[in-house]
């Protein structure tokens, strides 16, 4: 997806690099204390990017995300009867930890690991060249999830010959607590939902997303933050899941489950129930926020 509106610079051009902010450490907050059944406090603000149709900023602990929505704008030579919908994610270049974390931790099969190794090498090469040209593995996973989850919610047939583009920018991430990719997906999805509402694109329903974890002793932890107990990588039968819902029609539109070992139906049911609880709470928060901004 190249940007036709910009003139690309000469090949030898280098990206502008700013010196790191001197007292970076002082701005990082200590993670919130939380219980198993509650969700962390989060901050949202919409309409902060002026040249797009809709945008949303979300902050939870040390994770900050900006989502901007462009569209519906005309495109040529593609789908006639309905709009095309695409999602692109960009993780800030200085978030090394995030890429390290996912490369080592995300998957388990040998083949995938090999693939990731290659991807990581690629990433290394591209980041050292002029900016970043291709999506990293994290960015790809995030984009795919968001696109899949939001496709059923947008009334694409109302926008023939058009395209709707979503850009997710992850500005900061909880680096010292290594919060999981799933948690990041959850908050990106919730932020995207509000950005889409802000853009005035017609939606069948708002999508709200929840995350839950089933621990060894079969307790469900909603919105797990890894800061509380440190990260367990050899957690035995720990199951983590993200699920997106359209609450009014009670439909699941996105689901991602992650576990070190096998999972059974009962475990999935429990963990999805946890996700649903969180998604409902998020949805009521969103509704309240939207009504208060009108």
């Amino acid at each position: 997806m190249s940007d036709r509106r910009r003139i690309t610079g000469p090949e030898s051009a280098l990206p502008l690099v700013f010196a790191p902010t001197p007292n970076n450490q002082s701005t990082t907050k200590s993670p919130q204390e939380k219980t198993n059944s509650g969700i962390r406090n989060f901050f949202i603000k919409t309409g902060i990017v002026s040249n797009c149709n809709g945008s949303c900023f979300l902050e939870v602990d040390n994770t900050t995300i900006i989502v901007s929505v462009y569209g519906a704008k005309p495109i040529r030579g593609s789908s006639v009867t309905s709009a095309s919908f695409s999602v692109m994610t960009k993780v800030s270049n200085n978030l090394e930890e995030l890429s390290n974390f996912t490369s080592s931790d995300l998957s388990h099969s040998k083949e995938e690991k090999e693939e990731q190794k290659l991807a990581k090498e690629d990433e290394y090469v591209t980041t050292n060249q002029i900016g970043k040209t291709q999506l990293s593995l994290v960015e790809q996973k995030l984009s795919t999830y968001i696109q899949t989850a939001f496709l059923p919610s947008i009334l694409l047939e109302k926008y023939p010959k058009s395209s709707i583009e979503v850009f997710i920018n992850i500005l900061t991430n909880d680096s010292h607590t290594n919060s999981s990719l799933l948690s990041l997906i959850t908050w990106c999805a919730n932020c995207t939902s509000l950005a889409l509402v802000d853009s005035g694109i017609e939606l069948k329903d708002m999508v709200s997303t929840g995350i839950a974890k089933l621990t060894d002793d079969q307790t469900v932890v909603i919105d797990p933050s890894y800061s509380n107990e440190g990260r367990k990588t050899v957690g035995g039968q720990e199951v983590r899941a993200v699920a997106s819902y359209m609450s009014v029609t009670d439909t699941v539109v996105g689901l991602m489950i992650e576990s070190e070992e096998g999972v059974n139906g009962e475990m999935i049911e429990k963990v999805i129930d946890g996700c649903n609880t969180m998604a409902r709470e998020i949805r009521s928060n969103m509704n309240g926020f939207l009504v208060s901004t009108m």
């Binding site: 509402v197 939606l203 329903d205 009014v248 509704n287």
Partner: peptide
Amino acid sequence: RVVVPGQPI
């Protein structure tokens, strides 16, 4: 009087 996307009217 005031609605959000997805809300039945």
